[in-house]
Amino acid sequence: MLLFLEQLLNGLQYGVMLFLLAAGLTLVFGIMGVINLAHGSLFMVGAYAAAAVAGHTGSFALAALAALAAAGGAGLAVEFLVIRRLYDRDHLDQVLATFGLLLFFNELVATLAGRTPLFMQPPAWLGGAVEIIPGVPYPTFRLAILATGVAVAAGLAFLIARTRLGMLIRAGATHRAIVGALGVDIRLLFTLVFALGALLAGLAGLMAAPILAVQVGMGEQILIATFVVVVIGGLGSVRGAFVGALLVGLVDTLARAFVPGLLKQVFAPTTADALGAGLASAAIYLLMALVLVFRPRGLLPA
């Protein structure tokens, strides 16, 4: 039972990590209609900046600043130089262009930082473990990720529901042309939203750097899972992304934790291992396919 609780917590924590990435992706898609394959690259840029600065200064606060600045800066540059020209285009053009950006960022980081994965550890005050479940020391940093994710979710909910910017974002998502006609600078709005998405990706990179390998290509590994989250939740919906992320995190974690064991009740151990691992790998895709078959627009469409 305790083990189940712990796995539940693990699933939630992984889900929140995914949410940090998915929130930016879904905002950019929902409001600007842009499919940004390079979102994972911004995540990577954030993680690299954090690890590099933490390595030189040893300060987590400076690392956090660097991650946000680097990802935000890269995001602004990308928006200004490329995305801005593609708002009226076909989704496919955006896919091709951001695919090009993805290749570029991977190789740029490899050229600048080398191919050795970088090192980063959590700050000392988050480095320990807390026994929130009796007998199970849970890493404090993972709790910090959980807290960050929840804070971001709350912040975004407030931003979108209560502020003028949020109102424009909501309006821009549904009736872009009319918002423009009413005298709102749509360009500026889009730039802001894209920068916000990039900042969220940078934040995700910062929080991921101490627990993942900071390496070239780290963005793509998690990008696909992030897209799954966004689609399950419903494109453009931050609430949907939150629900989708938790669902994907739980399904993925619980499948890995319990499916092989359950299969062993039925099959021979070797068959169960192979089958279990295969099933666990495909679990989130199975989930997505099921959701889309029954709710073709996702769980909470915007």
Partner: peptide
């Protein structure tokens, strides 16, 4: 084909990934 647009993109990806993992296993 029950879905369309971006959702179609993603569901085809999902099925392809399932086949991918099948051959990996």
């Amino acid at each position: 084909l029950r879905t369309s647009g971006i959702h179609f993109i993603m569901i085809t990806l999902a099925f392809a990934q399932m086949l991918f993992y099948l051959f990996v296993s």
